[in-house]
Design a binder for these strands. Sequence first.
DNA 1: TCAAAGCTTGATCAAGCGGTCAGGTTCTGA
DNA 2: TCAGAACCTGACCGCTTGATCAAGCTTTGA
Lengths: 239, 239
Amino acid sequence: MAKTEIESLRRLRDMPGALRRARRRKPGRRMNGTAVNVRGTIRERNEARILKAAEAVFAKKGFNGASTAEIARKAGVPKPNLHYYFRTKQLLYAGVLDNILEIWLDAMDEIRPGAEPAEALARYITRKLESSRLLPEPSRLWAMELISGARHVEPFLKKRLRRLVQQKSAIIRAWTEAGKIDPVEPEHLLFMIWAMTQTYADFAAQIAAVLGKDKLDEGVFAAARKTMVSLVLKGLRVR
Amino acid sequence: MAKTEIESLRRLRDMPGALRRARRRKPGRRMNGTAVNVRGTIRERNEARILKAAEAVFAKKGFNGASTAEIARKAGVPKPNLHYYFRTKQLLYAGVLDNILEIWLDAMDEIRPGAEPAEALARYITRKLESSRLLPEPSRLWAMELISGARHVEPFLKKRLRRLVQQKSAIIRAWTEAGKIDPVEPEHLLFMIWAMTQTYADFAAQIAAVLGKDKLDEGVFAAARKTMVSLVLKGLRVR
DNA sequence: TCAAAGCTTGATCAAGCGGTCAGGTTCTGA
DNA sequence: TCAGAACCTGACCGCTTGATCAAGCTTTGA
């Protein structure tokens, strides 16, 4: 789905290394049409394990701070095996981001042309916040990538995300014109919903420390949801 | 002011190195009471240059990703000279965070016992947003530190920031009891104001890309401020 | 049964890292 | 004028890093 956006990253693939030696052919399937690896799962299973480990390590230490050795250890494979499946660290990083883009966009389809603002906004906030609760590491990795300048996901931001925001903004503007909500700059409204919901994943350490907790429990997320929904619905005077 | 919070970090100072050799005495002033270096500026000027460069590099690459060589290059000094002023990378990082803690707390004194909610909240949001506009790099470095687990600033979060939030929360609760604003969980209200204002520094790359701009100009911040203030004031039904 | 493709891994490499050192130059107060 | 403190820096060190290699092992299709 969102595979194409980071295609440019793929093209960046470790140029120095690539020029030094012929490219290893990509295995996993045979050349002729017949499917091989009938269970076809060795590669898939190993790639998934490595990606999952990489997600956690990249999220905690950033691209530069993460080491392939640590990722390999966490995935339970020897380091050369990691490099067998992901030739370079850059490509591994691309693979991880690839997974995340879909999560990121997923909740936004709550904002539909026909929907009632109150329900649509409440559901959107709820889903985004659930992402922060259940998948904090992808959220943190995404945040790291943006803070670092978003070089790897720039094409995605400029094309796909921008287009999507324009579409959703039109819907929100229509709500205003129909007298269903107060006038608002829809793009900024979205930025603020993103910020509020993601802060409970990205800055969980700060929130937990301030609240005097070890980690954010369901009660914290419930209170956050209530505060957030109330703020947005009343803030827009949703009818 | 906020110097003591990271004292624990100072105690961490490069233990391996420190044990291997006697500590170099800290220069800059003579031992006897008389002030030396009457202009006293060589050390101050160099430390400031290095801190400024370090802030930018740490903000972009995180603690692990930043290299002392790059910081030194950016500061225009040879690498050994950087280590002359900041013995270890950890201590340099501590120095940078030290500067930031004060910025972070600064705006919060807008929320005062006597203040009217409408004005206090509007001014707080405005000041926080100005921080994001004028000092985006400290904000991004702070965000990186929190995402990475906040190990270096944990004492600050758990003691000073927590206490401050408790104080400000009491004030906000009093506003509710006085019937000046709707009931709200004050801690979460603060988390959301932090999130919304800082998103314009931390995730500037994403916002710029979505808006189709090269960088966030004053118009963007003006619109953000307007949206944010309106959302919070109406969301709390401030009288 | 077997050859080829896919998968695994201990050993190894060059590059970059944080940090040190020795020996210089400049500044300061008396 | 001068001794000592402060400041500066090219060369270097031990270690970790991303990545590679070569030699194995396992799976697969015919």
